[in-house]
Amino acid sequence: MLALLDELCGDTPSGYDLSDLSATAAALLQAGDITALLADHAGQATGVLVLNRCASLYAGRFGEISELYVKPEFRSAGIGEALIRAAAAIARERGWSRLEVGTPELPAWARTAAFYKRNGFIDVGMRMKLTL
């Protein structure tokens, strides 16, 4: 996950600490707040998908992909697609109506948006945040 944050920050250090991220991940997993799917190749972690349970009046219960990361050297090898298929299977087992993902900033992340569209996602808007 640290590699994802570092990549998103570009030339600027992310400022995140691996031990802090590990502690947060452990707490969220233990509480059942998230489901994490890991991809590996020959015992080496190659990708991760983090899935959250959400609910709304318009969709009922659904899942949100809050993180999806594949190491650069393993991209275009089907790992991201496999993680999405696994997340969709979990969503169906849980009776969720859909999966959602935040819209990446365009044009900088056009390749990411195209990846999601190739995997069946459609545009329904974007998200904003209020930091508390």
Results as ranks from 00 to 15, higher is better:
42 A>S: 11
88 A>E: 13
70 V>Y: 04
112 T>L: 01
94 R>V: 09
67 E>R: 03
99 L>N: 00
65 I>W: 06
47 G>Q: 03
112 T>M: 03
105 E>W: 01
55 A>V: 07
42 A>Q: 10
59 A>Y: 10
29 L>K: 14
53 R>F: 12
33 D>V: 05
106 L>H: 02
103 T>E: 14
118 R>M: 05
59 A>S: 13
119 N>L: 04
47 G>E: 11
87 A>L: 08
85 R>N: 08
38 L>D: 15
102 G>W: 09
66 S>W: 08
71 K>C: 09
29 L>E: 11
107 P>G: 04
64 E>W: 13
89 A>V: 14
51 L>P: 02
52 N>P: 02
104 P>G: 11
102 G>H: 15
34 I>D: 00
52 N>D: 10
49 L>D: 15
87 A>G: 05
52 N>V: 06
105 E>T: 12
96 W>A: 01
24 T>Y: 02
66 S>T: 11
77 A>V: 02
35 T>N: 03
77 A>K: 15
57 L>C: 08
81 E>R: 15
113 A>W: 08
71 K>Y: 13
94 R>Y: 06
95 G>R: 11
26 A>W: 03
81 E>L: 01
107 P>V: 03
73 E>G: 09
104 P>T: 09
55 A>K: 01
64 E>H: 14
46 T>S: 13
53 R>E: 15
90 I>Y: 01
31 A>L: 06
50 V>T: 14
57 L>N: 10
85 R>D: 11
89 A>Q: 15
114 A>G: 03
62 F>Q: 07
78 G>D: 07
116 Y>I: 02
74 F>I: 08
48 V>L: 15
114 A>K: 14
91 A>Y: 05
69 Y>K: 10
27 A>P: 06
69 Y>D: 12
52 N>R: 08
114 A>E: 11
88 A>D: 12
